[in-house]
């Protein structure tokens, strides 16, 4: 699983990193985004919904996204 370390980065940077990484991820595989910006917990699931990817889990600091399309 790819891990993107976006700790210390302000939104929208973690979402931008995620969007850039997704094309390199095989369909069905996961990406973990580490982010501590308070907007990430909201905006990473929102990105998944808008871009048709699966938001698997998030704990406020680590967010797992599965590429499904």
């Amino acid at each position: 699983m790819i891990t993107l370390d976006c700790l210390g980065q302000k939104c929208p940077l973690p979402v931008i990193r995620l969007a850039r990484a997704i094309p390199g991820v095989p369909v069905g595989e996961m990406v973990r985004v580490l982010a501590d910006d308070p907007a990430a917990a909201n905006d990473i699931p929102a990105w998944c919904r808008m871009k048709g990817q699966e938001f698997v889990a998030g704990d406020g600091r680590a967010f797992d996204v599965r590429r499904i399309s």
């Binding site: 302000k10 939104c11 929208p12 979402v15 910006d37 308070p38 907007a39 909201n42 905006d43 699931p45 929102a46 990105w47 808008m50």
Partner: peptide, 22 residues
């Protein structure tokens, strides 16, 4: 968006709706 607020937190309204905040 969080970057425009004094608290640097995203709008609690956008969060409650679960829509994009940036």
């Amino acid at each position: 968006s969080s970057c425009t607020s004094s608290t640097l937190r995203p709008s609690h309204v956008l969060e409650a709706m679960g829509v994009l905040s940036h």
